[in-house]
Design a protein around this nucleic acid. Structure first.
Lengths: 165, 165
DNA sequence: CAAGAAATTGATATAATATATCGTTCGGTA
DNA sequence: TACCGAACGATATATTATATCAATTTCTTG
């Protein structure tokens, strides 16, 4: 019998994973989203998304900054934060609060709030989408008479590649 | 029939809640823990725990700092962080990563990792302990071949008192 | 008790992360 | 072209956190 699960798991990138393809896919998605919503996908915003989606890790704002422009003509910190805010608004980028870092979301859409898995060793980020967890949060919220606005589930540990067998 | 639940919920403090009593209880618990483990519950560490457990909210490190000592004779930032590290090691204090803030844990012991509920308006913090959630995280970890080390579940929103009815 | 070791604290500096403000430029539109 | 609003650049500063090393306190042992 098949294993039933409430979660759709977005696996971590495989070792042969092609970051360039992944990046192109993200860019296309961003372009289409912006077109639909009448928003501007400027070169700066594009550059931030390219950097994040190529890295396939979470990066600090200043890590992103270092990779922007060339040695000369580097934008100020606020520019990165502005682009990150824009991309987060579109759910293309998420913030990893436990690290003050950011990463490109690899899921096309979020049917529900998701869970983030981050490897302490290589920094790679995976995502899962467990309705069981979100349902339980909703139930608990009822008990507590609490109205949830953002749900943040971050699991840090060792990914398959990095944990010693 | 009784409602069955997998979660033991530590409710938010009631409106008539006596912070002083709560604080005294926390201090006693800290004293007893330190005695057992041969650790030193110094005046500085005590002061940090008193401030946090009286507030019953999460506070930033520098908020705590402002309430320490008197106007003169205020310790340097590192002192607060050292005390916080000590208290977190004992699970008496937790860090709210989404806010870079700290709060005193009101639960006697954690049988399992817990969930934090924080009100955006008044900053009050509640805790729940849902084994359903932690079990599901464990199951997902298996699917992902991921070894979890820390699990961080933070729900931000509006508490019963603050949400407009 | 004295001397040495270890833990804690104080003092100073600085790193890392994030935001505020305001003038300029860019893109679209009347 | 002239205007308007969004985006960006430039500058300054706020907020959060850590590094380093000396001084002090506490504990342990002789």
């Amino acid at each position: 019998m098949a294993v039933t699960t409430t979660a759709q798991v977005a696996p971590f990138p495989k070792s042969g994973h092609d970051h360039a393809r992944c990046r192109d896919w993200m860019i296309k998605r961003a372009e289409s989203l912006c077109l639909d919503q009448g928003l501007r996908f400027t070169p700066q915003r594009r550059e931030v998304l390219e950097i994040l989606s190529t890295a396939h890790q979470c990066l600090g704002a200043y890590d992103i900054l270092e990779r922007m422009g060339h040695r000369d003509r580097r934008p100020p910190p606020a520019a990165v934060y502005r682009s990150l805010d824009f991309l987060m608004e579109l759910n293309l980028v998420h913030r990893m609060t436990s690290r003050n870092a950011f990463f490109a979301c690899t899921r096309a859409e979020h049917a529900a709030p998701i869970q983030f898995w981050i490897c302490r060793h290589c920094g790679v980020v995976g995502e899962s989408e467990s309705t069981l967890i979100t349902d339980e949060v909703a139930r608990l919220a009822g008990e507590l008479a609490f109205r949830p606005e953002t749900i943040n589930v971050e699991i840090e540990g060792a990914c398959q590649t990095c944990r010693t067998p």
